[in-house]
């Protein structure tokens, strides 16, 4: 018995109830989707709506949620210096880490795409930090590297430079996290490399026959044809940067300090939810994050038509 084919409606069997018809035609599909459906309604859609509701309440897990209207949002917008600080920190992080990371990724990918000998080795080495990613071990390492008597300052001391205690100085602590993010440029680099390989060689041949210089070829062929990949990397890496959590948590010992200088948005949300058990307030923060990410994504897709080159 085949439930797969949507039987071309020639065969009309005897009259069946709607349920039987549904099971015969669509049953298999919905059976296969059953686990996902349970997850979607129970763990995604349901909770998302619930947190939208909670964001208008005061809720501490112990007593029932109490409706407070827009009070959470009003306080976030007008009377929460920590929210403002976390926004500043997060936007600083996104604005610096994403462009730097992608610039490195593109530069190295371009260098490697020249048919370099040893490409697999270079690619592997540059990819490794990105694979190690957000593990606590890497954050621990970073904490030591940029400590007052850490590796970086020991190195600088060789040149008579006395470096500050980078991670406990509010002027530098966030920058060390930007450096960590840039260090992990491996996976966008691999995506750039794959994109560069897609560019047909005969375009370059034709261009050089017409006497186009290498740099002209880069600006007129490579870069335009790579814009879809650039676009993809920008969107993915930006969303990831907005959600960064572990390194800031480990380096600041969960506080977001010194003086809120590493208070990533997600870290602040975590503190509100699981440090102070202000679940309603944290839900409002979560929905603001969703709106920020949605606005950013919509903006990217709307502007894409002006700078992303889509080949037919």
């Amino acid at each position: 018995m085949s439930t797969i084919a949507s039987s071309p409606s020639g065969v009309r069997p005897r009259k069946q109830g709607p349920l039987v018809r549904f099971l015969r035609r669509d049953g298999a599909g919905y059976m296969f989707l059953l686990p996902w459906f349970i997850g979607f309604f129970g763990l995604t859609a349901g909770p998302a709506l619930a947190s939208l509701y909670l964001s208008f309440t005061s809720f501490d897990l112990l007593t029932d949620p109490r409706w407070v209207g827009a009070a959470n949002y009003v306080r976030i917008a007008t009377a929460d210096p920590k929210f403002a600080a976390s926004m500043r920190v997060t936007f600083f992080f996104v604005l610096f880490s994403v462009p730097l990371k992608l610039a490195f990724a593109l530069l190295v990918a371009l260098a490697l795409n020249r048919g370099m000998r040893g490409l697999p080795w270079y690619r592997a080495i540059f990819y490794l930090p990105s694979l190690l990613g957000t593990s606590v071990a890497i954050a621990v390492l970073w904490r030591q590297l940029f400590a007052g008597n850490g590796l970086v300052n020991t190195f600088l001391a060789n040149f008579g430079i006395e470096g500050p205690s980078w991670i406990s100085n509010p002027n530098y602590s966030l920058s060390t996290l930007v450096i960590l993010s840039v260090w992990q440029f491996g996976s966008p680099m691999i995506i750039f490399l794959a994109g560069l390989r897609q560019i047909p060689q005969d375009m370059y041949e034709a261009a050089s026959l017409d006497g186009a210089s290498k740099s002209r070829q880069f600006w007129k062929i490579t870069l335009p044809l790579l814009t879809p990949v650039v676009f993809f990397n920008v969107v993915v890496q930006t969303i990831e940067a907005f959600k960064a959590f572990t390194p800031a948590f480990i380096i600041s010992g969960g506080t977001g300090g010194p003086i809120n200088s590493t208070l990533f948005y997600t870290l602040y949300l975590y503190q509100e939810a699981f440090g102070f058990f202000r679940m309603g307030y944290a839900s409002a923060l979560a929905w603001i994050l969703l709106v920020i990410i949605a606005l950013f994504t919509a903006f990217s897709f709307l502007t894409a038509r002006y700078w992303v080159h889509y080949d037919d």
Binding site: L43, T44, G46, P47, A48, A50, S51, L54, I239, F242, K243, T266, L269, A273, M279, A282, S283, L285, A286, W287, L289, L290, I293, A294, T297
Partner: peptide
């Protein structure tokens, strides 16, 4: 596209 923070608390 949904950040997991939105479903986290419920």
């Amino acid at each position: 596209m949904l950040p997991y923070h939105v479903t986290l608390i419920p």
